[in-house]
């Protein structure tokens, strides 16, 4: 298929393959009047080539800050990068190296956002904005790009591709705008696409369409995908590996099927129980309490106050403990189970 370029690579990552993206011990804080907000604490994340990773957590759990930090996008100040390294394709991403960042952003790591309509400049037509980005990355004339642009837009289920290019962002629906931004990402062909809540502001039908598109894109192009969502059902559909975040930390990560079938962290268990299941009747489970204030985190496990299983060791922060192949959870219960045999 011409839209997609070279033949697709098998989607599943080989075990032990060198990671495409590797974030190590990322810690990001924000100054605020209430004290320093610990937005992201010691997050390490690996994305293998062609892999799809879902990051799940509620608002303020650090998902977006983690994603933005992958290309050092957060303005500093107010963000304070306390620590951490990012390696992309084996290359260390330096925080203050603007030239390197410009090379990586877009071409290496692409992003699509929650509100696609707002991620286009309201002063220009969509066509002009696509042209601008393509001109920057490829230096070929628009006229030569146009057939590929139209084809890609149609691939993204935009029937009136010519018409959409002539529209202003406010003249298209959120769903169309999101598909245009996916098409734009597809035109630039990043190695890694970070989709930050791509379906959150869309109606249900558009959500299904955009998810289907991302799924198809991944299957056919083999690009690596980081899908951020607060919605487990969205992640369940696409991700091969799932990372659960809570209060700025990774609390559990593992293969998607294991996370969904046998979650080990009480928070993940609560999340799963509260996700809507069509087959279940009765009252939906609610996780008790609210997430802690990131400006005044209590010592110990951040989830302790809401956890039904909290016991004495929880007053210290548990490390990520192995819970199977490629599966880990930040919970003292795992240590107790291991000790009990």
């Amino acid at each position: 298929m011409t839209v997609l370029g070279p033949a697709p690579v098998p989607a599943r990552a080989a075990e032990g393959e060198a990671p495409l993206l590797e974030a190590a011990n990322l810690t990001v804080r924000f100054g605020s009047p209430a004290g320093e907000v610990h937005a992201v604490e010691d997050v390490s994340l690996r994305v293998a080539p062609h892999e799809s990773v879902g990051i799940v957590g509620e608002s303020g759990s650090g998902k977006t800050v983690t994603c933005m930090s992958m290309t050092w996008l957060l303005p500093s100040p107010p963000a304070r990068y306390v620590g951490g390294h990012i390696r992309f394709k084996g290359e260390e991403l330096r925080r203050n190296d603007e030239a390197q960042m410009r090379r990586i952003r877009g071409r290496g790591i692409g992003m699509i956002f929650q509100n696609a309509r707002l991620s286009f400049n309201p002063a220009y037509r969509l066509g002009a904005q696509i042209a601008e980005v393509l001109r920057m990355h490829f230096r070929t004339p628009w006229r030569a790009q146009l057939p590929r642009v139209l084809e890609t837009l149609r691939y993204c289920n935009i029937a009136d591709a010519e018409g959409v290019l002539q529209r202003y962002p406010h003249e298209v629906s959120g769903g169309v705008a999101q598909r245009v931004s996916i098409a734009l990402a597809l035109l630039i062909r990043p190695d890694l696409l970070i989709a930050d809540e791509p379906t959150t502001s869309l109606d249900l039908l558009s959500q299904i369409e955009v998810l289907g598109l991302l799924e198809r894109l991944r299957a056919e192009t083999g690009l690596a995908l980081v899908l951020v969502s607060h919605d487990l059902n969205v992640v369940r559909r696409i991700a091969e590996r799932v990372v659960i975040m809570y209060a700025g930390r990774i609390v559990e990560e593992g293969p998607a099927h294991e996370i969904f079938a046998a979650p080990r962290h009480p928070y993940t268990q609560g999340l799963l129980a509260s996700a809507l299941q069509r087959t279940e009747g009765g009252r939906l489970y609610e996780l008790p309490g609210t997430p802690p204030d990131l400006a005044a985190l209590p010592p110990g496990c951040s989830f302790r106050a809401r956890c039904a299983h909290a016991f004495a060791p929880c007053t210290s922060m548990p490390p990520l403990l192995p819970a199977g192949a490629g599966h880990a959870a930040r919970c003292h219960l795992l240590a107790r189970e291991a000790a009990d045999g």
Binding site: R105, G106, F113, N115, L118, S119, M136
Partner: peptide, 13 residues
């Protein structure tokens, strides 16, 4: 604005 963030993301100087 989000579109400026998006532009930065796309590699704009």
């Amino acid at each position: 604005a989000p579109f400026v963030e998006a532009a930065r993301c796309a590699g704009f100087s």
